[in-house]
């Protein structure tokens, strides 16, 4: 039990002196910036004139977005990317974390899985663009050994997004494995011993002990993974250039191109607001789950 101390005038002053750079930063790069985005999303602005002279167009930027087939396909691709990447990462990294638990040299294995997490996404994109090369990439080469026919992974609209999702899963597993491992270690060994005495199989133990007890970690990773995945940019920018835009482009790329290639700041801001709404819904959904799950450590 903490007894709230009365704050003195000097302490108030000291606190605000310590916070002043942060408050100044948030005033400029957050509050003003968000307001600016909202303001511009209702206007037509090309960045060449003063934003104050930008013509007010009402909600038309938002309306026009949904009649732009490229925006709609970007939205669909983002949803496909976010869900498949997150689900695959969570399932695979849980399985790997369980398999790694109590395995010899587990630290070495974890490092191997972790390497892509620190690697710049641009480097990952470059490496995999070569690996996916239809004639001299090793992906088709290895698949050929297994008798699987070669594909133009990054240029064929049917495969391009899937190929990028596979890379995202490859790159994203390491961090989740680490967090799952921490979660697995928190499960008391006595539960497993009791189950073993009762003659439970490993599979049975996984489904009746591990899975229910690791649930908070699974939820946490699903949602943080999802929030990150909604905003994917680097991998798609590097690897998605040779496929038709409608098959790989995601919202973030749509925003970038609309703003900094076409200089349509109004519709780019409107698209950014829509992305924000998606992220916000995901976050609020998570916070709800956390509260229900009794995780209050963020307070």
């Amino acid at each position: 039990m903490k007894i709230p101390m009365k704050s003195s005038r000097r302490e108030n002053l000291a606190a605000y002196v310590f916070l002043s750079p942060i408050l100044l930063f948030f005033a400029i790069f957050f509050a003003f910036a968000v307001g600016f985005s909202v303001w511009i999303s209702f206007r037509e602005w090309d960045m060449l004139i003063s934003p104050l002279d930008a013509v007010f167009v009402g909600p038309s930027n938002y309306v026009v977005l949904f009649s732009d087939p490229l925006f709609v396909s970007s939205l669909v691709n983002t949803v496909i990317y976010a869900f498949s990447t997150t689900i695959a990462v969570v399932i695979l990294s849980l399985l790997i974390a369980v398999a790694l638990n109590n395995l010899r040299y587990s630290a070495v294995w974890r490092f191997i899985y972790f390497a892509p997490v620190v690697t710049p996404a641009v480097a990952i994109g470059i490496i995999w663009s070569y690996l996916y090369n239809p004639s001299r990439g090793i992906v088709n080469e290895v698949l050929g050994w297994l008798g699987i026919p070669a594909h133009n992974w990054l240029t064929d609209p049917h495969y391009a997004l899937m190929a990028i999702i596979i890379v995202a899963v490859w790159a994203g597993m390491g961090a989740s494995i680490l967090i799952f491992t921490a979660g697995l270690r928190a499960i008391p060994q006595s539960y497993y011993e009791a189950a073993r005495i009762d003659g439970a199989t490993k599979v049975k133990m996984f489904f009746s002990i591990t899975l229910p007890l690791i649930k908070p970690t699974t939820l946490f990773l699903s949602v943080t993974g999802m929030i990150g995945a909604w905003q994917v940019f680097d991998l798609i920018y590097i690897m998605g250039t040779n496929a038709p835009a409608s098959s790989v482009q995601v919202i973030s790329l749509y925003i970038y191109k609309t703003a900094f290639v076409n200089l349509q700041m109004g519709s780019a801001s409107a698209a950014a607001m829509i992305l924000f709404a998606i992220v916000l819904v995901t976050t609020l959904f998570t916070l709800g789950i956390f509260r229900k799950g009794g995780i209050e450590s963020y307070e």
């Binding site: 957050f30 968000v34 985005s37 973030s252 924000f276 976050t283």
Partner: peptide
């Protein structure tokens, strides 16, 4: 430190994490 508005400012600080980077590209530029 104890100061007026501490709880509110802390919540505000955390809430800024919910805003995607893409919202800030144009205004920051």
């Amino acid at each position: 430190l104890n100061f007026i508005g501490k709880k509110l400012l802390f919540k505000f600080t955390l809430s800024t994490m919910m805003f995607p980077a893409f919202l800030f590209l144009i205004p920051n530029f």
